[in-house]
């Protein structure tokens, strides 16, 4: 696990990582920039076809309470990048009780592809994390983005977790969603929001192919659904009792969207 522990420094840690994927010779994607400090240990892995595969290795403890983490990935025109993590990211309380921030900025160029598939974000008791993910897509870009939040480790009450995921396509807003759970968030566990579930996630797929052939709305059991957005995109939303059940739901949906998903 990428544990996001507490450091004595009262100001908290500021850490950043940056990935640039660019087209190389023979249709292969190269990584002219692959850098990260603090908790960000990035590795290049073997990949499918010509795509680049970057993995965030959970080798370091990363402080969160009061810290600011920033992760940026740019996929240049025609390049293809797959991003994964080796372990879940764990948000832990800091000594000061100050909230932590984790900002992810993704840009995908024309005819470029990004599969952003990190392991879940786990909100531990007493933690307070605000995550933002902003994605800017060119009109012909393809995106598969998975986001999973797990509220509390096994048997533990959750910390406070707020997220905002904003996706623009060709400069136009396509998807904008804020989620908030845990202490000081009114109504988060009621029947309108989570209804007692402890894992929540989504799989967002943007592909120009949806313009001609939109995804069909589809139910995946009582707590998950595939929904076409008001643009060439679909989102699978799911809530589940735990991380494992959530992943099962999202994976089953991914296989149903296979028609447009090409592996990278």
């Amino acid at each position: 696990m990428t544990t996001l522990l507490d450091l004595p420094a009262p100001a908290g840690l500021h850490a950043a990582a940056r990935i640039v994927a660019a087209p190389g010779a023979g249709g292969r994607t190269v990584l002219p920039v692959l850098e990260g400090d603090g908790p960000f240990a990035l590795r290049r892995l073997r990949s499918h076809a010509g795509a680049a595969h970057v993995c965030l290795v959970g080798a370091m403890s990363a402080p969160l309470g009061g810290d600011r983490l920033a992760l940026t990935a740019v996929v240049e025109d025609t390049a293809a990048l797959r991003f994964t993590t080796t372990a879940a990211t764990l948000a832990l309380p800091g000594r000061t009780g100050a909230p932590a921030a984790y900002d992810v900025r993704l840009a995908v160029g024309e005819d470029a592809t990004l599969h952003w598939l990190p392991e879940p974000l786990i909100s531990a008791r007493g933690s307070d994390l605000a995550q933002t993910v902003r994605v800017d897509l060119a009109a012909s870009a393809r995106l598969v983005l998975r986001e999973e939040q797990v509220l509390g480790r096994a048997g533990e009450p959750t910390g406070r977790l707020t997220t905002r995921l904003t996706v623009r396509r060709a400069g136009r807003l396509l998807f904008d969603q804020e989620l908030a759970f845990g202490p000081r968030v009114p109504g988060w566990d009621g029947g309108a929001v989570l209804g007692g579930h402890r894992a929540v996630g989504q799989l967002l797929v943007v592909d120009p192919a949806f313009a001609a052939r939109p995804a069909e709305p589809r139910l995946l059991g009582p707590t998950a659904a595939v929904a076409p957005l008001a643009g060439p995109a679909a989102v699978v939303s799911a809530v589940a009792p735990d991380a494992l059940a959530l992943r099962k739901l999202l994976d089953s949906a991914a296989s149903r969207l296979n028609a447009v998903l090409q592996p990278v």
């Binding site: 904003t166 804020e178 989620l179 309108a192 998950a224 659904a225 929904a227 939303s237 809530v239």
Partner: peptide, 16 residues
């Protein structure tokens, strides 16, 4: 704000 409730979104599709 863009606050959203996962169950409202999911169950709206079922209800429909």
């Amino acid at each position: 704000p863009a606050c959203s409730a996962p169950l409202l979104d999911i169950t709206a599709e079922q209800h429909a």
